[in-house]
Amino acid sequence: MHPLTPSKDPAPLTLPSPQGGEGGGESGYGWFPYALIAPAMLMLVVVALVPFLYTVYLSLHEIRHAQVGDWAGLANYRTLLANPRFWHSAGISLLFIAIAVPLEFGLGLGGALILNQGVRLRSIIIPVLFVPTMMAPVVVAILWKIMLAGSWGLLSYNVIERFGILTGTSVLASPSLALYALVLVDVWQWTPFMMLAFFAGLQSLPLTPYRAAAVDGASDLQAFRRLTLPLMAPLMAVIGLLRLIDAFKVFDTIFLLTGGGPGTATESTSLFVYKTVFDFWDLGPASATAVVIWIMFFAFANGFYQIARRKLGAF
């Protein structure tokens, strides 16, 4: 028998009776729904929209010593786009995402499928899986520094050096390897999260289609391809998008483990922005960077959203 747990029939959603009558909008509930979402919207406006609009404002002005000066038009954007370091950091971020997220996705899904097979001690394994995800990035960075530090790191000494791999250098000090080490750290931290999210999704799939497929003689692989993947697609789209956004923002581990080096081998866009603001106090180009990144991500997320909504039925 297929191990998937049948889902329960969802109880019908009960809403308060329409009270608004005429003029209450399409729902007929009047101001009530707006009142419910008002605190959240207000909070969103205060903590997200206002700072964002202020950032746009800053990006269009000359800023010297943190004092807003004259209107600068698109000068800060021109400075930014002409800066090879910005493009280099964008390339690093994209490479990081391109390797880390698919790995986390694949390993997470694989692990979730294994967990879903009724693995023994699941009640112990699942809480343990939460540990890397729950750790603060600073703790994760320190932990991996201890693991990968050249000459004395637990992993670098006992595994890499003892077996004669990578002698004469260290993983975090190697321009060609440091980024992959950071990917490894990210995969270590976030794969369990993906695994648990997918596992929760698998647990909620309806059993009936699998029973029908079994009656029709479908193999496990066919059931996975024809049923599991399509049914899980909306969840995968949401989790994938969230992870992409989060991976693009990675900062703490890079800052602590390599500082963007060696050279600029691991300088992500987040680190570039941080340095431009807090080290160089170049607030004009830094604001422009934030806006450009936002536009890029908005375009990407919106495209992803539209595709996921139309093709996968997500969102």
Partner: peptide, 21 residues
């Protein structure tokens, strides 16, 4: 120097000296 020197900060250097390598 030790192979990991490119990742040694001002805090790591005394640690390495203290470790005696």
């Amino acid at each position: 120097s030790p192979p990991g020197q490119a990742e040694y900060s001002l805090i790591d250097v005394p640690t390495v000296m203290g470790n005696g390598i």
